[in-house]
């Protein structure tokens, strides 16, 4: 880009301003359209029965009916759904980070015969679509008597080819001197992993954990198959079942429930949006 050249001709300045306004207008329009479903969900969730039935729609409800949320919360064990989602998401996330980091460290830092061939085995698992494991994994869990348990929801999805790959790259980027110094101090591999490798790659680990949080919170197909009682359902499944089971729920209630499910991922996303988006961009261009 040529930034040093100053262009001051009035016509050029005017052109720049027009182009800038057009850019903002385009982006505001696009962001508005994309964001509209969220606004519509929130707006509907506070409406009365009468307002929900109006067309053209009321954009801002005349009164905020918080009781829609109370109605939804009490119409099904939403507290259990929340608890189940939090337990399975967090335990799955922690396990997957640990398991991924352990194997990544081994592949990056410890000599072993045919290490690179073994690493290809890890990469090969990425070629197998997870959906094809549905039936066999269900049967495996049935044999383990893990159907309708937390470990049944969590364990089949904590192995991590992606995490192993990502963290291995990150560990390679740490200068050799640092490891040498640690070794001189007599630190073993586990200590090097915990007090050097992981802390020094914290941004990568954090981004990985954010992706896992979102992916596990949103999981639908597997928890649907592996749970079968209300008290074991996670939020996305509970949400859909509530709507099917409760014929009297209006759209305001369904939207309130949807917001309850979406809220944690939306908060996490907007708090860490830069990290998440840049993680995506980096992965795609390099990978």
């Amino acid at each position: 880009m040529i930034t040093s050249r100053r262009i001051t001709h009035p016509k050029v300045v005017a052109q720049r301003i027009v182009s800038r306004i057009l850019s903002h207008a385009t982006l505001i329009f696009a962001a508005g359209i994309i964001g509209l479903p969220f606004f519509w969900m929130i707006s509907t969730s506070f409406k009365s029965d009468v307002e929900v039935g109006l067309f053209p729609p009321v954009w801002i409800p005349s009164a905020l009916l918080w009781e829609n949320y109370v109605r939804v919360w009490t119409s099904a064990p939403f507290d259990m759904f929340y608890l189940n989602s939090i337990i399975t998401t967090l335990s799955g996330l922690v396990l997957e980070v640990i398991i991924g980091a352990m194997s990544a460290y081994a592949f990056a830092r410890i000599e072993f015969p045919h290490r690179d061939a073994l690493f290809l085995v890890v990469l090969a698992t990425m070629m197998i679509p997870g959906e094809m494991a549905l039936v066999p994994n269900y049967l495996t869990l049935r044999n383990l008597e893990w159907i309708n348990t937390y470990q049944g929801i969590v364990i089949p999805y904590v192995s991590s080819a992606f995490g192993c790959f990502l963290l291995r790259q990150a560990f390679f980027s740490i200068p050799q001197d640092i490891f040498d110094a640690a070794k001189m101090d007599g630190a073993g591999h586990l200590r090097v992993l915990m007090s050097i490798a992981l802390p020094m790659t914290r941004p990568v680990v954090a981004t990985f954990a954010l992706f896992l949080f979102i992916a596990k919170w949103n999981a639908y197909l597997w928890p649907l198959i592996v749970t079968n009682t209300w008290n074991m359902r996670t939020l996305p499944i509970g949400l859909v079942l509530v709507r099917e089971a409760e014929g009297t729920l209006g759209w305001q209630h369904v939207m309130a429930a949807s917001l309850l499910v979406l809220l944690p991922v939306l908060i996490v996303f907007f708090l860490a949006q830069r990290q998440i988006i840049e993680g995506i961009a980096r992965g795609a261009v390099k990978g």
């Binding site: 696009a30 962001a31 994309i34 519509w40 996305p236 759209w251 996303f269």
Partner: peptide
């Protein structure tokens, strides 16, 4: 405001499928 535009336009990508499916059923 570049980051804000980018974040809003990107935001549907990581939303819970089951929940946005209900929102779209209503839309």
């Amino acid at each position: 405001g570049r980051d804000v535009y980018r974040a809003i336009i990107f935001s549907p990508t990581f939303t819970t499928g089951a929940a946005v499916a209900l929102v779209w059923t209503w839309i």
